[in-house]
């Protein structure tokens, strides 16, 4: 239906260019001071978190305001298992992730029957409850004091001692996370999720078990969130309840909507930009306005570019290829280029 050249341009726009961007940022960070490394590391961790959230909110079109709960499970799981019980980080990572997935399945099963506002409220409550538990259950979490002494990420007994080594690992995991997201999106599984986002009645009528697929998307999102929480714990070496508080929800929403909800690379691009934002504001001596800036960005995006930056880029590319290849199907695909 489309020419080779168009397909090629689309590939570059949707895969090669974002991968290159991630690698360039990684290289720049590796040649900078520790502070930049930290910022880019956070961006990668949030990129993983948002890529997961995108399964549920983007592909499947549902709302979750409580994904921070699963990041907390991952963060505390890793902290407790590695710092107190001296587990191998990889084992702690996967055990926490599976635990978060099981919790998501148990909570999601009744909750996902709710829709719209009710689902949003229920998930928000989940985040709040987890936050309270992380404060109150002091024996387990050390409460407000937070959990320190978490070792750096390690692979097979080899510890990634420096922040820069860890950053490389984070970038690779981020790329893996997006690769999984892309593969799942363009498959029978992904089409089922996206049909739910498009129209639940139509999905049902085509034989899609809507409840089951929503639950699957919720569990996947929770597992990504847990992974992000674990990685944060290793990267910083310290976690506290505040790390996984409600601010995380606002921040991840800003990233998701800014970058492009429902697209493959949007969450990553959003995470990168929003992570840089405090530094830009600091440069302009406006640090106190950070939360206000998030909200302004979020609202502007919702109004002016509801499909986010990645979709805008996609539309730009589509417009260019359209001009260049008028002999083929005319409207070759803002949507596809954005995907």
């Amino acid at each position: 239906m489309t020419s080779r050249a168009t397909t090629f341009t689309r590939r570059v726009a949707t895969t090669a260019a974002p991968v290159a961007l991630v690698l360039v940022v990684l290289l720049l960070a590796l040649n900078s001071n520790g502070y930049v490394v930290t910022i880019v590391g956070f961006a990668a961790i949030y990129g993983i978190f948002c890529t997961g959230l995108n399964f549920f909110m983007g592909y499947t079109g549902q709302a979750s305001f409580g994904q921070n709960a699963f990041a907390a499970l991952g963060g505390y799981g890793t902290a407790i298992l590695t710092a107190t019980y001296y587990w191998d980080p990889v084992a702690a990572f996967f055990v926490s992730m599976i635990f978060a997935g099981i919790v998501a399945a148990i909570i999601g099963y009744p909750t996902l029957k709710l829709r719209g506002h009710y689902l949003a409220m229920a998930t928000f409550a989940l985040g709040l409850i987890t936050y309270e538990i992380s404060i109150e259950w002091i024996d387990l979490t050390q409460g407000y004091m937070g959990y320190s002494g978490i070792p750096p990420l390690g692979v097979f007994g080899f510890e990634l001692a420096t922040e820069k080594q860890q950053l490389v690992a984070l970038a690779l995991l981020l790329l893996l996370g997006v690769w999984i997201s892309t593969r799942l999106r363009d498959s029978r599984f992904g089409r089922a999720l996206r049909s739910i986002a498009g129209s639940e009645p139509a999905a049902q009528a085509l034989g899609v078990n809507v409840a089951r697929y929503k639950l699957a998307a919720f569990v996947i999102a929770a597992m990504y969130a847990s992974a992000a929480g674990s990685l944060f714990a290793h990267f910083v070496g310290f976690i506290s309840p505040e790390v996984f508080g409600a601010a995380m929800v606002i921040q991840s929403f800003t990233m998701l909507f800014l970058g492009g909800i429902g697209t493959t690379w949007g969450p990553v691009i959003g995470a990168l930009i929003v992570s840089m934002l405090p530094e830009v504001l600091r440069g302009m001596h406006l640090k106190e306005l950070q939360d206000v800036a998030y909200c302004i960005i979020l609202v502007s995006i919702l109004i002016f570019a509801p499909k986010g930056i990645f979709a805008l880029i996609g539309e730009g590319v589509a417009a260019i290829t359209r001009r260049r290849a008028t002999e083929t199907a005319p409207s070759a695909a803002a949507a596809q280029a954005a995907g």
Partner: peptide
């Protein structure tokens, strides 16, 4: 009409093969 509006025409049909 209950189409998947954000998907292309072809993607709409592809989703139909689920069963």
């Amino acid at each position: 009409v209950q189409l998947f509006k954000d998907l292309t025409v072809a993607q709409n049909v592809m989703a139909g093969f689920h069963r």
